[in-house]
Design a protein around this nucleic acid. Structure first.
Length: 823
RNA sequence: GCCCGGGUGGCGGAAUUGGUAGACGCGCGGGACUCAAAAUCCCGUCUUGGCAACAAGGUGAGGGUUCGAUUCCCUCCCCGGGCACCA
């Protein structure tokens, strides 16, 4: 069918690559410039590679091959993120222990990744579920612990009813579990956290990172930094409980005079203390009900602002006004201080709440825009602001604010905060949406947390030399019960305290798999003696990762965690692990996401078996821009199959028929040279931009030309190198066929001659009143006078010029000639 | 609700700073080769009218700026992604 035997060729070269060890990287001795080409490592599933794997790994590899040809020493490692729920869930249903199924899956996957024809250096692979790896994940935990960045604390946390474990904030999407989709509820539990919040400012700093703007923005929004004021409200103690106070956080200190009540979150410590006897029953019931609700329930009730009065009052420190203290679940316990000052005139939520519960509304900021509306409202309600149709949330000028009247919001924020500072009742303050990273999980298939609980000494970290704390593989009931399965393995639980040697119990929770994946890129550079988690000298040499390729879904999870952990491990708050980041797009079928349930999943094997892996890879590259994905078409791939075949024919002079040139006969040598150099330029520039689709298109254009015109041997060699990142096996075969020395990947990437890529004569359009009326051919640097003269000579153009008087002439060299005619 | 992307032929998708819209490929139509089919090769392919030259319309909808707008501005519609009471 095809004259190019793709399957034979790909087998041949995969074998040759392996035998010659061409992809094995010398991390220390090589004198070429280093390039760390990283792709997010896969979770090893038992299924065959799906199209997304091919898309991601195939194209990431093409990038690596291109960089290699550019003369770099490319480090392209690969490993497995092999801890995690799927293997464990499989164990629950089948009884096959995770360490067994995982081993089988990774072996199989390695084989398949080889079939793509990738240049991974398997000598330096990692598997996060191996004791050799998780030993050091535990060490990472201890590092965090020693630096005071890991702590165990009771807090309201997210609990997934499906996975029967707690989840990090980042792993809850729309109130559901990111993994299994089950509903997530709030529970008060004692859990391990990493203090990622203390790195918020460093994580906010993306300077110097060549990352997609969108990803940086998502992280910025997730961290959610707000600059504002913390204000202390004293409680008017009717309960006789002594001097009570609470702090609130606000970004709008300028509205402080408009505060007509305060709200505590139901979980706030002070709720009990400020509630008066007569309100106790009602408040307790409200708090209890709120606790039972999921976040979804709380927000699902939407704009309906529920709440109860505590019976107590607080004093507004700026004016001594007494305001009632309420409890309401529209105030979040975990943000700011868990308490707010409510200013109904200038906050939509407070406005809705005040309306519903008939609390006063006082206008303290006025903007130009509100002027008309207010006049129409009632003049009588001016000072009270009850006439406001809605909250005015914009900045403006202060009113009803005593001596601060007339100040702009900006100025007032500063002045009011400074005043509060004088009386020790407030200060400037910064608040973040980012919460600490909850890292403990009540599941089996993860790295055990290296902590023991001693009756005498309390919480004691396991000494580094005793690592790894091995995950038991015998006698484990994997079934999730809401407690770690490890709790039911006595041999694991019962231990001795490393400090006092007394009886102690091991921590039974395991670590979030995102901890494992937050440092694997460092582990690829492990030290030979295994004395350290990674080789510091190698890390110094090879970091940052020059290119990191992976899915955009990790923007606020892995990519945030990895930056944080990297900063801690290399002991530099400003260090960044990934210099350039590129996200692959999604491959769809008929415009829809592929899914088993829709039955529109495309299996690569069928097409790889028919056309070979090069064609499959190249079609994926051709489908659309890499970052945007593309739509798979069973028919579309035939275009690339034809292309590969025609390419092969060109190299082998099998171009008979149709009057095409062959046998080394070149009909226009200058044109060949020009087109070849234009191709080199186009392909090089497109690859740099990750626009592989247009690079392939340029190849096709060139091929169409070359098959007619003929090519010489030198051009064939250049073409073989140029095609190498796109179709590595084909390129090797062509290169060998042309008598080139193994390997094509040890050649130099061709350079174009700038003089050859510009045409001396070009064809440009001529417009009359903006409409194209003809085209003229003129020299590249033709002066305006000549260009216009030639344009006028065009019969169709002159026809339109005669219709009136030329009032303007336009000449953009190389682009357009235009006339404006009036009449 | 808010914040990002994006809407271009039958389809996937191309189009520097505003400068000949539709590259390249698929599909489709026609032809060559063949007893025939496949494969291959050649020609055509945005719509309408015309043999053609050419003309008119055309990049989600409507306005605007400009000699000229897929590109810039305003209003709106649709699709994808993120956030979601963050005070």
């Amino acid at each position: 069918m095809f004259s190019y035997d793709a399957l034979r060729v790909q087998k041949k070269w995969q074998k040759r690559w392996k035998e010659t060890g061409i992809h094995s990287v010398d991390l220390t001795g090589d004198t070429r410039k280093k390039y760390y080409n990283l792709v997010m490592f896969p979770y090893p599933s038992g299924d065959k590679l799906h199209i997304g794997h091919w898309y991601n790994y195939g194209i990431a590899d093409s990038w690596g091959r291109y960089i290699r040809l550019q003369g770099y020493n490319v480090f392209e490692p690969m490993g497995y993120d092999s801890f995690g729920l799927p293997a464990e869930n499989y164990a629950v249903s089948s009884g096959v222990p995770p360490h067994e199924s995982t081993k089988k899956n990774t072996d199989y996957m390695t084989l398949q990744l080889g079939e793509i024809g990738t240049m991974y250096d398997w000598d330096k692979t990692v598997m996060t579920s191996s004791p050799e790896y998780y030993k050091w994940t535990q060490w990472v935990f201890l590092q965090m612990y020693e630096k005071g960045l890991a702590y165990k604390k009771e807090a309201p946390v997210n609990w997934c009813n499906g996975c029967m474990t707690v989840l990090a904030n980042e792993q809850v999407h729309n109130g559901n579990c990111e993994r299994c989709g089950a509903e997530v509820v709030q529970k008060n539990l004692k859990q391990w956290f990493f203090n990622i919040k203390s790195y918020a400012d460093e994580l906010l700093d993306h300077s110097g990172l060549d990352w997609p703007e969108k990803t940086k923005l998502m992280q910025t929004n997730w961290i959610g930094k707000s600059v504002g004021t913390e204000i202390r409200f004293l409680v008017e103690a009717e309960t006789g409980a002594g001097e009570l106070f609470f702090d609130v956080f606000t970004t709008r200190a300028d509205t402080l005079f408009g505060c007509t009540y305060c709200v505590l979150a139901p979980e706030h410590d002070l709720v009990d203390k400020v509630t008066t006897e007569d309100r106790k029953a009602e408040v307790e019931k409200y708090v209890k009900d709120a606790g039972k609700k999921t976040d979804m329930d709380r927000t699902a009730e939407g704009k309906d602002k529920t709440g109860v009065f505590t019976g107590s009052y607080a004093v507004n420190p700026i004016n001594g006004e007494k305001v009632p203290i309420w409890v309401a679940d529209y105030v979040l316990a975990h943000y700011g201080t868990g308490a707010v000052m409510a200013v109904p005139a200038h906050d939509e939520r407070d406005f809705a709440f005040a309306k519903k519960h008939e609390l006063p509304i006082i206008e303290v900021v006025r903007g130009e825009r509100a002027e008309g509306e207010r006049a129409e409202a009632s003049a009588g309600a001016r000072s009270e602001g009850d006439g406001l149709p809605e909250a005015f949330v914009d900045y403006g000028v202060l009113v009803n604010s005593g001596e601060f009247d007339g100040l702009s919001s900006e100025e007032a924020k500063k002045k009011i905060t400074e005043r509060l500072k004088e009386s020790d009742s407030g200060d400037f303050c910064i608040s973040y949406k980012l919460r600490d990273w909850l890292v403990s999980r009540q599941r089996y298939w993860g790295a055990p947390i290296p902590i023991v609980h001693c009756k005498k000494c309390g919480e004691v970290p396991v000494p580094q030399k005793e690592l790894p704390v091995k995950l038991p593989t015998e006698g484990v009931d994997y079934k999730p019960k809401g407690k770690s399965p490890l709790a039911s393995v006595p041999d694991f639980v019962n231990t001795k305290c490393p400090k006092c040697s007394g009886d102690a119990e091991r921590e039974v929770d395991t670590m979030d798999t995102f901890v494992c994946s937050s440092w694997y890129f460092l582990r690829y550079l492990s030290s030979k003696d295994d004395e350290k988690a990674f080789d510091k000298e190698l890390v110094k040499k090879w970091f940052p990762v020059d290119m990191y390729i992976g899915g955009p879904e990790h923007a606020c999870m892995h990519l945030l965690y990895a930056r944080f952990v990297h900063k801690v491990l290399v002991d530099d708050r400003n260090a960044e692990p990934f210099k350039r980041l590129v996200h692959q797009g999604l491959v769809t079928k008929d415009g829809a996401k592929m899914s088993k349930s829709k039955g529109n999943v495309v299996s690569p094997d069928e097409f790889v078996g028919k056309y070979g892996s090069d064609v499959f890879r190249m079609y994926l590259m051709f489908m659309g821009p890499f970052t945007e994905g593309g739509d798979w078409s069973d028919k579309g791939i035939t275009g690339i199959a034809r292309f590969a075949d025609r390419f092969w024919k060109l190299i082998n002079d099998e171009v008979g028929g149709g009057g095409a040139a062959g046998g080394g006969v070149v009909s226009d040598k200058d044109a060949l040279k020009k087109n070849l150099h234009k191709l080199i330029k186009k392909v090089t520039e497109d690859i740099e931009k990750f626009n592989f689709n247009t690079a392939v298109a340029a190849f096709m254009e060139f091929l169409n030309f070359a098959l007619k015109n003929g090519v010489d041997e030198e051009s064939k060699k250049i073409l073989s190198v140029l095609i190498a990142p796109f179709a590595p096996h084909l390129a090797e075969e062509c290169w060998e066929e042309l008598g080139g020395e193994y390997s094509v990947f040890d050649q130099e990437w061709p350079k174009f001659d700038p003089a050859l890529v510009v045409d001396d004569t070009i064809t440009i359009g001529v417009q009359v009143n903006g409409k194209v009326r003809g085209e003229v051919e003129l020299s590249n640097d033709a002066p305006q006078e000549e260009a216009l003269r030639m344009a006028r000579e065009n019969p169709n153009v002159s026809k339109y010029l005669e219709e009136g008087e030329v009032v303007k002439e336009i000449y953009v060299p190389g682009r357009i000639i235009g006339f404006v005619v009036k009449g």
